[in-house]
Design a protein around this nucleic acid. Structure first.
Lengths: 196, 196, 196, 196
DNA sequence: CATGAATGAGCCTTCATTCAT
DNA sequence: CATGAATGAAGGCTCATTCAT
């Protein structure tokens, strides 16, 4: 029965559009075509639903990025395509991303409690993709020496900040994408690449 | 009478800590030491209070940044001290900043409607500080050729994203500050400065 | 489940006794033996309840009158028994009638909007009963020539005014009934009936 | 200082337009051009204001009717001009009259308590005008034998009912006036006037 | 006299959650 | 599994009234 999926899908859309607090469970039920009690029946409470939906979006971003990364030649390429993948995702699934920005799952929930730890884990796996690229780049000489952890954090900050500027302030996505790329390249590109 | 100020202060703290929707007006009243009706009496409704509080924080960030910028020698210096000012503010007034991140004044309110337009205006004045630095830097040769608008947007994205990483994910602020500085410097610094 | 009926019954009594604005929804719930939220759950809002209750009383008066009218011999008889039925109703269901007098459904609601149009319709059907009697009376010679529409309006005005005098001012109902009858008879009775 | 008058005037208009319960004291103050506290300061509470305003309208109707009655030749003339005066008042001061219909001063207040007894008194003096006409008419032979008290009550019922039909249901005032007159004349006119 | 800031009780409504069916 | 009637706590807001100035 597709009811569970219908509920999660509906919740994702509504949470993204109006935010968690402004989305009554009854609206989710209506949008999913099920009875009011059914949502709670399956998910025990509304917060669980937020967690699941949030996790799904994180996972989806992770998967999409993973796919784009595969054929990266150098470490620098990997890092740059990580950035590109982010904007590609934003371009195609703005709605889904809105969810991450608008909701405070990270804040209100105890991140150390199960199952929220899963959420953090997913996020770490996602960042890991970037860090691996950076590490590879440092090794293969395409990226200048730096601390991959810190750099990955700031790149991620830039991306999520750009998403906010686009989704909330209406800034042009393509400008943000191009300029972000320029920032990353300027910071990473090794001016003195390793000799062959 | 300090009652209005007490309400705004209380609202700022509570909105920042728990978010707008999770802060009952009655809690604000209690924290401000006034009766329940007093909050609405002065601000007509809860949303107004959010607007005022948000504006105040934006203004405060603007003012703090303006102060730090004054003695900048070159345009590059100005831009870098803009970034430094941001982290300085975050360091000292993390709570206040939380408000901007956690609340969706920009999303739920019609930004073009008065008085929300004021909010946008304040934000633009703030960004203008950075843009002026960039323009000056391009002119005085300390900053390489670029589009000040786009660059300022991405820098702002990076800053606000870093704030999120720090405040919500608990990332170390000093690492983020240092690395952000490195990004900005890498992107801006003119490799071929104008001759003397 | 009799809960809906219990709510409507309770609302009818309370609206009639204390008026719409002076009857908290919570009182209705209490009187109906249900939880506070149940009233709104079923009727969406308080005003709906007023409409439904008002309609029910109008309908009940219509039905009661219709029943009394059936065996009328002449048109004059029909008109007179219309009047008698009104006072009979007032005698037996004073409380219910109070509702019509004390509440301003007609004033505050847009009578032309659905479903308030239903209310007007019900009222017109009720008045129609009187008009038909008058028309029949003019035809069969028991009623003198007159405009049935205007006459029905004034008779209705007299009746509702009498109800007000009785219910609000405490005037004796039987005096009002007898004298009203005398007025109607004096105005309608044909002094020169048709020849046999 | 005209402040008290301004308040009473404003209250009259607002009570008539929106009803007592739906008129905040603050609106009255605003309309009267005084501060919020001033209304209560002068009238102690809102209910007093309703009483005063209601009394004023009753008095005004009484005065207007008294004026129209003066030159009545016969008792029947007096009664008929009483009715005419009512419609004349309704024609010219519909707003003021609305107040009597829409508000429940008579119901919610204890009519026997001072000062509400004054209201009843005013009403009785008004009705007395009609009763005197009827008594005179019976004496001078222009009105057929009847109980002046009962007849006056039903005439008053008819008038106030007609006002309701006009003000709330939108029925045409002139039709109501003409037909009401016909009813009164039919009931009162002596078919066999006293011989000279 | 008059003000208007301040109060706090009370109102209508929302909504996550429960539970009998 | 699923439903939806029912709940009741909580929320935002209104408003008559008070009172220091």
């Amino acid at each position: 029965m597709g009811k569970i999926k219908a509920i999660v899908d509906a919740a994702q859309i509504l949470f993204a559009e109006k935010g968690y607090e402004n989305t009554p469970v009854s609206d989710i039920a209506k949008a999913a075509g099920v009875a009011g009690g059914t949502v709670i029946y399956h998910f025990k409470n509304k917060e669980n639903l937020l967690f699941i939906v949030t996790w799904r979006v994180h996972y989806s971003l992770f998967k999409a990025t993973l796919k784009s990364l595969t054929p990266a030649r150098s470490g620098l390429d990997a890092a740059l395509s990580f950035v590109a993948a982010f904007f590609e995702y934003l371009r195609k699934r703005a709605g889904e991303f809105q969810l991450i920005l608008k909701n405070t799952a990270y804040d209100t929930l105890d991140v150390n409690a199960f199952p929220n730890a899963d959420l953090k884990l997913m996020h770490l796996r996602y960042l890991r993709l970037l860090q691996e690229g950076l590490e590879r780049g440092i090794e293969d000489g395409s990226v200048r020496a730096c601390d991959p952890m810190s750099v990955s954090h700031v790149i991620y900050a830039m991306l999520i900040g750009a998403a906010r500027l686009h989704l909330s302030h209406g800034e042009d996505l393509e400008n943000l994408a191009a300029e972000s790329m320029a920032f990353v390249r300027a910071r990473l590109e090794n001016p003195a690449p390793a000799l062959a």
